[in-house]
């Protein structure tokens, strides 16, 4: 260690070292700081960890006092989440057990049987998840596509009242959802869009447009305009220059924007709660209503939440360099 700091006539100066950063006190403070951050990170992750383990607990383990950290993992929560079940009567129980021994039951059926139930069909949640995928997926494609065109135009052309227009686009994001939901509800009811996939896709598309325009504009602004100018001089049309020069350069930005839009649409709750009831209802409001039905199936709720958590964790890591832009709607870069 000591050799690292040795300087003097015999040593070449490779880098400048500020004395106030390498003194023993400074190094001790450094270590303390790292420790505090570590502790904070652990505390932050406790609820996430608890949700993760609860998803694999059996019904008895969830409500055990004191709460268990070590337990026998089971997939009960997932079975409860994805299936509708009925209690198997005592008369039929041996018949089921025989089937189980013969290996005729699937994994889920066996787990359900352990709790004395048989699976009668898939739960609503499966449909809700499908709706979430459809609505979040299509609306993301639309908002990134439309946003890309608009962002390019805003980035490259002089447009009258550009700043006002951009501010208008950003401000739509600041509205409390309820302000627009009441009239939208009435509008959708008139148009037959209430509780429809199309209605939700349109709404989420607009909801994400402000984000995608601002984010993509930032990314496109960073692509040197000279590339396009060179292409234009060489006889490319504007449109060719756009998709042959700008698009390939903006791929990273487009990918980041797509994931941000996807996460926002995937997580959205307020609009979905107010504008859907059954056909187009997405997963977040349905996880929340699971609380209301009969006894609280905590492991099922945890399993559902875990399903929401995993993509988010992956995304957080994949996008860590773009997170700042994403969560401030692209208004802040650097």
């Amino acid at each position: 260690m000591a050799t690292f700091y040795e300087t003097g006539p015999g040593y070449p100066v490779t880098e400048s070292i500020r004395v106030d950063r390498v003194s023993p006190t400074a190094r001790r403070i450094h270590a303390v700081r790292a420790f505090v951050v570590l502790v904070f990170a652990i505390i932050t992750l406790i609820p996430v960890f608890v949700m993760g383990i609860t998803a694999f607990k059996s019904r008895a383990d969830v409500v055990s006092v004191p709460p268990k950290i070590i337990f026998k993992p089971t997939l009960e929560g997932f079975v409860f989440l994805f299936t509708e079940r009925a209690v198997v009567s005592k008369v039929r129980l041996p018949e089921f057990q025989k089937k189980a021994e013969a290996g005729e039951l699937s994994l889920f059926e066996r787990i359900a049987l352990n709790t004395g139930q048989e699976i009668t069909g898939p739960s609503d949640y499966v449909d809700r998840l499908k709706n979430s995928l459809i609505i979040a997926g299509i609306s993301t494609i639309l908002s990134v596509g439309l946003g890309l065109f608009a962002a390019y135009a805003f980035s490259r052309f002089p447009i009258g009242g550009k700043d006002d227009l951009l501010f208008f686009i950003l401000s739509t994001r600041m509205l409390p959802p309820v302000v627009v939901t009441i009239p939208l509800f009435l509008m959708y009811r008139q148009l037959g869009l209430h509780d429809s996939h199309l209605g939700m896709i349109l709404l989420y598309t607009v909801f994400n447009l402000s984000l995608s325009v601002w984010l993509l504009k930032g990314f496109i602004d960073e692509i040197p305009i000279e590339y396009e100018e060179a292409a234009l001089v060489d006889g490319y049309t504007r449109f060719q220059a756009f998709y042959k020069i700008v698009l390939p350069q903006a791929v990273t930005g487009i990918a980041a924007t797509t994931v941000f839009c996807l996460i926002f649409a995937w997580n959205e709750y307020a609009f979905a709660l107010m504008l859907t009831s059954d056909d187009a209802r997405t997963a977040p409001p349905s996880i929340a209503t699971m609380l209301g039905r009969g006894g609280i199936e905590w492991s099922a709720i945890a399993a559902g939440s875990l399903g929401f958590l995993i993509p988010v964790v992956i995304v957080t890591f994949a996008l860590r360099n773009y997170l700042l832009r994403g969560v401030t709607f692209g208004a802040i870069r650097r």
Partner: peptide
């Protein structure tokens, strides 16, 4: 520090309603 910072950022990416349920538990 990079890893820890990213881990700390996870909560704000989770759906708030799911977070609400988390914490209810």
């Amino acid at each position: 520090s990079g890893l820890l910072t990213t881990l700390i950022l996870i909560p704000m990416m989770i759906s708030p309603v799911v977070v609400g349920l988390f914490w209810k538990l």
